[in-house]
């Protein structure tokens, strides 16, 4: 190996990157060449200068701690979003909330109140009972037949009266469904007018029968007696119907 060949390889020699053959050749050349020898010593000197301990920047303890803390946080199971982070959604959510609120309001305004719904159900039930001869499950003018019939069919004992003497003969009873529950329905007759009385357990406080409302030409009278909520409905005129309910409530 001559100087021309050796010069480009000096750095690799100093860095220990020469293969064995080249390294042996280099070690054969260097003792005979002061210029290359000096270049090698300069490289080695530079290397030593660069490898001074005070030039090295080890990681500060604080950095090590921070890195570990970050990694531990990352390694934790999916963190729940911080409370405040929800507020980033405020613009989107407020829009959605306005829409929801409007929808809710519309539904609420269209929905009948509890009372409205109940009277509507009573009217419907009364009309059904007239339409298809479905008025009666138990056909009897005998209150002692009708009253026991409800045993085992409803979880209460409805008051049953025969008011034939007052001109309101009992003609039977049936089960109906009102106000999200099974109720007792008693059917009375006044001439050709059918009177439905719906009863189910309700307020313990008695109240006198009073005309509640008139819907679709039907009169509805409401009262409480003996822990029962009672409704009477008929196309009978309100005066006679009130007379009937007072007799019933006695």
């Amino acid at each position: 190996m001559n100087c021309e060949q050796a010069r480009p390889l000096l750095a690799a020699y100093v860095d220990g990157e020469l293969d064995t053959v080249r390294m042996l050749e280099m070690e054969g050349h260097l003792p005979a060449c002061p210029a290359c020898t000096r270049a090698v010593r300069e490289l080695q000197q530079l290397q030593q200068s660069l490898r001074q301990e005070s030039l090295y920047h080890p990681a500060p303890a604080a950095l090590r701690r921070n890195v570990l803390a970050e990694l531990s946080a990352q390694a934790r199971p999916e963190p729940k979003p911080a409370f405040w982070s929800w507020f980033r959604l405020v613009p989107a959510l407020s829009g959605a909330m306005v829409v929801c609120l409007a929808a809710l309001l519309a539904v609420t305004l269209n929905r009948p109140s509890g009372h409205e719904q109940l009277t509507a159900e009573i009217v419907s039930s009364h009309i059904r009972s007239l339409m298809a001869n479905h008025a009666l499950d138990v056909v009897s003018t005998d209150q002692h037949t009708v009253k026991p019939w409800f045993n085992g069919r409803v979880d209460f004992a409805p008051p049953v009266k025969d008011l034939a003497a007052q001109g309101f003969p009992l003609i039977g009873g049936r089960l109906d469904y009102l106000h999200h529950r099974t109720v007792a329905a008693l059917v009375f007759q006044r001439n050709k007018h059918i009177i439905n009385v719906f009863l189910w357990p309700g307020s313990e406080k008695n109240s006198a029968p009073s005309l509640d409302s008139v819907r679709q030409g039907f009169n509805l009278i409401h009262w409480n007696q003996g822990g029962m909520t009672c409704w009477a409905i008929s196309d009978l005129n309100p005066t006679e119907l009130l007379e009937f309910t007072r007799d019933f409530a006695l």
Binding site: A35, R38, A39, R41, E42, Q45, L46, Q48, S49, L50, Q52, S54, L55
Partner: peptide
């Protein structure tokens, strides 16, 4: 080689490096 003499015999101090 022109400047090498100064570096040849000793290690440069850390601040200079």
């Amino acid at each position: 080689a022109a400047a090498g003499e100064a570096l040849q015999t000793r290690q440069a101090d850390a601040e200079t490096v």
